[in-house]
Write a protein that binds this DNA or RNA. Structure first.
Length: 584
RNA sequence: GCCAAAUUAGUUUAAUGGUAAAACAAGGCACUCGUAAUGCUUAGCUGUGAGUUCGAUUCUCGCAUUUGGCACCA
């Protein structure tokens, strides 16, 4: 998918198109006041205050028509530079522009505005020569957006659009948007019977069907096996806990709004757990530890419940109940670097084996100004953040730093991916924590016999298994690799009357070789069964007819291919066994 | 939660202020089939609660859920 923001030419074109949109809005709604109209990855938007008037998507044709008229008129876009006072005078009737101008520093900023015909907008530019260039555009969506992104502010109307130099590029982009909807995990999940939701159960609470649970189980086994090899020990802890547990950890203070409300029974207060750190802290605290025992790596496929805002819920990508592939590594300060490195390598290896290539690393740091959200200990933060930087630089991976995105207890490394629809999401995370172990008085006995506080690494490779399945379904368009496919092989006799017996024999052989295999012995025509096998994205369809019976072979067709390969069954089993285990 | 929109059969979609339609799926019957849909047939639906109306799936309002953004995302 194209990134408009990063392409200089598209960037300028789209920004100019935002001005055309604003001009058209001004023509149609003279009362309109404008906030900002920046370029984003997928085009541009403009935030507009229209008072009580609400723009709906059904108004787009009207607005687009006015935009076309402006484009056709082909006015030049002319730049003027102003002093701060001139700018304040010029836009004196526009509170939004006054807000922008008054925050500009005259020394360092050249204040400029751009005029096209009867429309002038405060803008740093640059722009295309004339509005003629903005010919191939499309308005995409409209929504409310809080002024300055603050939910306490007024809601402005945000109109999104996109513009390309040619009609073909625009058409291609619109086609891509349509395709993205086709690979949305919510559609695939329904089509392939992977998961569903039910109003009576509750929103944001996905239920996995047999097909979905097979994927789940395979992923769970895959990651647990990898973790075991790295010395992780897996545990099982309850999905709720006493409120005091979260008061001790600080989560109650920091994340209460994201937790389901507490429930009282027999005078005791409980909450559904939103994360597993406190439970794992208590696992550590259950025994006395020597420096020789560290690092201790506690892993769990753990169910968590978070009270996500209803508007944030999205398929199995963002839910109110999910399972983290969680682990907490209790380490000495000297071990931070090697353990953190090992986690990053585990993430990289997993992605490589699963053939995931489109991701970016983000180093999430605290906002030093935000003393409320973040545990207040400058020295701790500086040390933690420096350590993470050092490890990442050593491994040599590229990352971007994000201020104010850290967890309250420490900085973190997040792996971000882009889903088919919507904003970037975090898949893997590794967080460094100097804070919680002290709150729980965790200790180990060091060489000199003194008690020391361990450092904790919180990490999740799949993030949540739910979210990972969502992402992976979209990456693969539902055509999962052999080892993850709910049904791996479909055995189809050409004619039940003559070939069913042989098909059953082959079916049994594949089954006893450990494959998930189906025998399609319905009284249907071959073409029908093949078609269904393909739409279900089953990796291998085996066609068995007289040719195969006579030669004692099998013929198979791989998903999304049309050619047929004929082999003897033992060679075929050898081949698919290799394919199934090859990812490890 | 906020700004909007949507909700019709298991699924995808059509239509309507006066007994709601089609395709696929499901059941039945026939066809005995060589690489993406054999034919016939049966059953099945207007999210929910109010209001307007002689009559509402259709109009209005509330609620629920979903979708697109915003905000949030340990």
């Amino acid at each position: 998918m194209i990134n408009i923001k990063e392409d200089e030419k598209l960037n300028v074109l789209n920004h100019s198109c935002a001005h055309v949109l604003a001009q058209a809005i001004k023509h149609l709604y003279p009362e309109a006041k404008f906030w900002v109209g920046p370029v984003i990855e997928s085009g541009f938007y403009y935030d507009i205050d229209l008072g009580d008037i609400v723009i709906k998507e059904e108004d787009f044709p009207k607005i687009e028509k006015e935009m076309k008229k402006i484009v056709k008129d082909g006015k030049r876009i002319v730049r003027h530079e102003l002093t701060k006072q001139e700018a304040l005078d010029k836009f004196k009737d526009d509170p939004y522009k006054i807000d922008l101008i008054s925050r500009m520093d005259e020394e360092s900023t050249v204040i400029s505005c751009y005029t096209q015909g009867d429309f002038t907008d405060l803008c740093r530019g640059p722009h295309v020569e004339t509005v003629k260039a903005c010919k191939n555009f499309k308005l995409l969506k409209v929504s409310g957006a809080y002024w300055k992104g603050d939910k306490n502010n007024k809601v402005l109307q945000r109109i999104y659009g996109i513009c390309f130099p040619t009609e073909e590029e625009l058409a291609k982009h619109l086609e891509e948007l349509k395709e993205a909807k086709e690979r949305d995990h919510r559609k695939i999940g329904k089509d392939l019977d992977i998961f569903f939701m039910n109003d009576l159960v509750g929103k944001g609470l996905p239920m996995y069907l047999p097909n979905g649970y097979i994927i789940w189980e395979e992923l769970e086994n895959y990651i647990k096996n990898k973790e075991k090899k790295l010395g992780y020990q897996h545990v099982l802890t309850p999905p709720l806990g006493n409120v005091e547990l979260y008061k001790t950890s600080g989560h109650w203070e920091h994340y209460k709004d994201n937790m389901f409300p507490k429930m009282e029974v027999e005078g005791e207060e409980f909450v559904l757990r939103p994360m597993n750190c406190p439970h794992h802290m208590m696992i550590y605290a259950n025994a006395i530890h020597s420096y020789r025992d560290l690092p201790i790596r506690i892993g769990e496929i753990a169910r968590d419940c978070r009270f996500e805002a209803s508007g944030a819920l999205k398929g199995i990508e963002r839910t109110r109940s999910f399972c983290q592939n969680d682990a907490h590594l209790f380490v000495t300060p000297e071990q931070i670097e090697s353990e953190f490195t090992s986690v990053v390598n585990l993430i990289l290896e997993t992605y490589k084996q699963l053939n995931i290539t489109n991701y970016t690393f983000e180093l999430s740091l605290r906002d030093p100004e935000d003393k409320v959200k973040y545990h207040n200990d400058d020295e701790m933060w500086n040390m933690a953040e420096d350590t993470l930087r050092k490890v990442l630089d050593n491994i040599g991976i590229a990352y971007t730093e994000k201020i104010g995105e850290a967890a309250f207890y420490g900085p973190k490394l997040d792996v971000q991916v882009k889903p088919a629809v919507g904003n970037e999401i975090t898949i893997s995370t590794c967080q460094l924590d100097f804070c919680l172990p002290a709150k729980f008085n965790l200790t180990y006995i060091d060489k000199d016999g003194s008690k020391k506080t361990p450092v904790v690494l919180h990490r999740a490779v799949f993030g949540s298994i739910d979210r990972f399945i969502a992402y992976y379904l979209e990456e693969t368009k539902g055509a999962l690799p052999l080892w993850l496919s709910p049904v791996q092989l479909n055995v189809i006799p050409v004619n039940n009357a003559y070939h069913l017996e042989y098909a059953q024999e082959i079916f049994e052989k594949l089954k006893s070789a450990g494959f998930r295999v189906e025998l399609d012995d319905r009284e249907e025509k071959l073409g029908y069964k093949i078609r269904e096998s393909q739409t279900r994205k089953i990796p291998y369809s085996l066609i068995l007819g007289q040719n195969e019976v006579d030669a004692q072979t099998i013929s198979y067709r791989k998903y999304s291919t049309t050619d047929t390969v004929t082999l003897n069954i033992d060679d075929f089993i050898k081949q698919i066994k290799f394919e199934k285990d090859n990812y490890k």
